[in-house]
Write a protein that binds this DNA or RNA. Structure first.
Length: 467
RNA sequence: GCUCCCAUCGUCUAGAGGCCUAGGACACCACCCUCUCAAGGUGGCGGCACGGGUUCGAAUCCCGUUGGGAGUGCCA
């Protein structure tokens, strides 16, 4: 009987949560849930001074936003790699004693010089048989054996590396601290990790790790290297060039469900004709064996489309709730905001936004004392020969009518018909007078929400400006 | 340079030798609907990188070419 699988997610402390990391986390999480396994979170840096409580909390918050709850019974951690330093060092010494490693006193400059002489790249194994004892400034190097190392990868199949292309890499630095590669393997052994799902960029280092697993007397885990996410130039997503921080998408009003769903369709697709599927189906269907082999472009446009879809699928109540954080630092005076009024506008904007951050700009004219009138909008709509008439007549008619959008519409419809015009034309000056823009939520519903007094005031001031 | 990975519409993908005249989604275009803008509906544009094999039959298997990407630290 085999043990339930143990996955691990190991972000490094970089200060922000990468969308690529989010996808890897999601892969691990989906598999954890389906197999009844465990998701191990490990904050990965051998230097503890680079860890910070804020960053750890940031990771946990980001994971939680993605639906990966650190209080879930299948969630373990966070562990800190730096706290295991003594284990890493101990393992290194075991490796040395067993003859799998040796000490070397060459500096980086010396190595480079030798490389130049021999015409080969990298370290040439100079100290292999010099029998050096440990000493200050000396590094411990792994003695890469002869032969080939075969990495069996769940998404890529069998990948073969000839050992003579792998140089004797450093295990322990000159100051005695362990290197990432070693620390990683020791931690994985310690935490009984059975499956390593990570980005493809780690594949070239995998034979080294596998060699350490072997030398330490353990069977290496199941590897799964998933393709990286790339930008439009087909380069790996980078912090400098690309928008990669999950937090930023959250701040812009991308819904977590949409983000999760979109991320999962990069390199994989659920069965059937639609990519918009609930998480439960992803958990049921996701298989590493089905993950694509080639890098995927992280397309913000498609993410937005997913998000719009998710927004429209929300109930009105949850939409209103979701909008709340985006209405606090809005462009209107706080005391003019009214939740009830917003609730009336909400169904009007729900089909019109793609991200939640667009909501304030769509309803601001309701809460602003004096919404700015867009210059282009004004010149485009007020130049018509009927602009002044429609404003004046509508103002008069609306002064004492029944205050609902059907009536408000029928009044303008009637006026329009009598003059053989189109409502599409005649509504424009009214819209600009009332909202300041040519586009926006349905006009008559908006006017109804705005109220008679304010509507008349705005119509009046537009009229005055026109005269 | 060396090592490794990858290659289906612009993009994300479906595709396990005949179900492929290559399916879907995003984007784009057109039309319908319509008080603006959206949403929704209908339709359209558009692809197996190239060259050789294997096979009765290749997007699918093999080889090569080309093109992309990653790795190559006393970083993680």
């Amino acid at each position: 009987m085999s043990e339930a699988p143990r996955f691990r997610f190991a972000p490094s402390p970089t200060g922000f949560f990468h969308v690529g990391g989010a996808r890897t986390a999601l892969y691990n999480w989906a598999l954890t849930l389906r197999t009844g396994g465990t998701f191990v979170l490990r904050i990965e840096d051998t230097d503890e001074s680079r860890n910070s409580p804020e960053w750890t909390q940031g990771i946990i918050d980001a994971l939680s936003w993605l639906g990966i709850d650190s209080r879930h019974p299948q969630f373990e951690g966070p562990y800190f790699q730096s706290e295991n330093a003594h284990l890493h060092v101990a393992a290194a010494h075991r490796l040395y004693e067993a003859g799998h490693a040796y000490w070397c006193d060459l500096t980086a400059e010396q190595i480079q010089e030798r490389a130049k002489e021999t015409g080969k790249q990298g370290y040439d194994g100079y100290s292999r048989d010099r029998g050096l004892e440990p000493g200050p400034g000396r590094v411990l190097r792994f003695r890469v054996p002869e032969g080939v190392t075969v990495v069996n990868d769940l998404v890529r199949g069998r990948v073969e590396f000839s050992n003579d292309t792998i140089e004797d890499f450093v295990l322990l630095r000159g100051n005695g601290t362990p290197m990432f590669l070693l620390a990683n393997v020791v931690d994985d052994i310690e935490m009984r990790i059975s499956t390593v799902v990570r980005a493809e960029e780690h594949l070239p280092n995998t034979p080294k790790q596998q060699l350490i697993w072997d030398a330490l007397g353990h069977t290496s885990p199941v590897w799964a290297h998933v393709p990286v996410l790339v930008n439009e130039q087909r380069k790996k997503l980078s912090k400098r060039r690309d928008k990669v921080a999950l937090e930023q998408y959250k701040a812009e009003g991308i819904l977590p469900d949409a983000m999760v769903n979109y991320l999962m369709t990069l390199g994989w697709a659920p069965a059937g004709d639609t990519e918009i599927v609930p998480w439960s189906r992803i958990v049921d269907e996701f298989r590493l064996e089905d993950v694509n082999h080639s890098p995927a472009f992280f397309d913000i446009k498609k993410l937005s489309a997913f998000n719009g879809d998710y927004i429209r699928a929300m109930s009105l109540e949850s939409f209103i709730d979701a909008c709340a954080p985006f209405l606090v630092d809005a462009p209107w005076p706080a005391d003019r905001f009214d939740a009830g009024t917003f609730a009336q506008m909400a169904p009007l904007v729900q089909t019109r936004v793609v991200t939640l951050s667009e909501v304030p700009a769509m309803v601001d004219f309701v809460f602003l004392a004096d919404p700015e009138i867009d210059t282009d909008a004004w010149t485009k709509t007020m130049g018509t020969d009927f602009a002044a008439d429609v404003l004046r007549d509508y103002s008069a008619a609306v002064g004492d009518c029944t205050w609902d959008h059907e009536t408000l519409k029928s009044i303008l419809e009637k006026w329009t018909e009598e003059r053989g015009l189109k409502l599409g034309k005649t509504q424009a000056p009214v819209r600009v007078a009332v909202t300041g823009r040519t586009v926006g939520p349905p006009l008559f519903e908006s006017i109804e929400v705005l109220g008679r007094e304010e509507t008349l005031r705005r119509l009046g001031s537009a009229l005055a400006r026109l005269a």
